[in-house]
Nucleic acid binder design. Structure first.
Lengths: 218, 218
DNA sequence: TAGATTGTTAATCGATTAACAATC
DNA sequence: TAGATTGTTAATCGATTAACAATC
């Protein structure tokens, strides 16, 4: 209900607030004002107060915000107080790195299964988990009820596998493919990571830096 | 000059345009109207025309846009017609996956070196490249002049290494760490990829889907 | 020419910033 | 109490959408 009204811009800032507050807490900060936090994060104090006020009154006039308390509240808003079972599809380079590199626990998830179509990687170990064949996917989902999935598979397989997962009850996707999930499926949560697009953006930014343009024209 | 005036929102859409136009071209499309492209991409035709008009007049009234030509123009805007030498710092799980997974050529870059501080991984092969020790970084940069770097190293090392690279002439960073480069260095291009934040956003989105909230309250 | 679709201006919408009264 | 800082309303800014004349 209230959640629907929060703008995307605000939501995208929440994980960063949570992260900075964690650092502050680790560095012994007990309280912080919106002004000081703004300075550290490169935002305005106004924006910070506006953002927090979307969810409630977390501060105290004349004092500021209690770091630990505020971090806790934002964590709850982000759903980090629950642990959602998640599976990974695709144990190639990227899939393996994600499985090994990401701190799922502190992001509200638990990685409970890894699947791949390639017999050469099935049976291999990644952290605590053994890579299973995609043939076991249905059975596994029926038994373990994962609610979220990471897609690190080729674009061509994404549609088929996503459809399948949705039919097994998966409702959230961390999507590293270029298949556009949101077009086909409506009430499913999707977070796209387009690494290639990200690097391309850097190319643009670089071409705008001192000298580059001139070189082309002279 | 003109470049500075383009809004960030527009720039972030350019790689996606480029990608979609590539798909269209591969599927035999010769021309496309803003209306049709909008439909395919989930945007409005108005927005597409506004976006393109930031850079010039790429279409023709009554006809639309020539797919191949438009893609080429956008590619040039993104700087994909040049190949910027790039190095990777950090050959851990994530670094390895990035090096192996990303199509640098089609993003305006060429990966020419990989470095790591861990003697256990130095000497290993990733694709065509052999992982070098960070001790060789200065010499390598003086000889090969990379202009861009990928940071896949621990946060604690990021500041030191970034400073070093900048002093060696690197002017663009694809930053996978949580070290905030933009704070310390001004005229350097930075593209941050915060995978953890991305997953955290998915946690939020999931917690807003049917049933979740109610469960907490009943 | 008539139809289609752009390029571009104007209107709307949303997000950020500024200001200030409330209050700790 | 006086000083500080929030919560919140109002003002500004920017981005998206709508409209339409230009033109192929």
């Amino acid at each position: 209900m209230s959640k629907n009204s929060i703008s995307n811009s605000v939501i995208r800032r929440l994980p960063r607030y949570h992260r900075f507050l964690g650092d502050l807490e680790a560095n012994g900060y007990v309280r912080i004002s919106s002004r000081e936090l703004a300075e550290k994060m490169g935002l305005t104090a106004s924006q910070i107060r506006q953002d927090f006020n979307c969810f409630g009154e977390f501060g105290q006039q004349g004092y500021g915000y209690n770091v630990k308390e505020l971090r806790g509240e934002i964590g709850k808003i982000l759903g980090l107080d629950v642990s959602t079972p998640m599976i990974l599809l695709g144990a190639g380079n990227l899939g393996k790195a994600i499985a090994a590199h990401i701190d799922f626990r502190n992001r509200g998830f638990e990685l409970i299964g890894i699947f791949d179509a390639n017999p050469a990687v099935v049976g291999g170990k990644i952290g605590e988990l053994t890579v299973k064949s995609v043939d076991e996917l249905e059975e596994f989902c029926k038994a373990n009820r994962p609610e979220a999935a990471i897609l690190c598979i080729p674009k061509g397989e994404a549609e088929k596998e996503a459809d399948r997962l949705i039919s097994y009850g998966v409702r959230a996707f961390w999507n590293f493919t270029h298949y556009d999930l949101r077009i086909s499926h409506k009430d499913v949560a999707v977070e796209n990571v387009h690494l290639g697009d990200s690097l391309t953006t850097l190319s643009y930014a670089l071409s705008g830096i001192s000298g580059k343009e001139k070189e082309d024209k002279e």
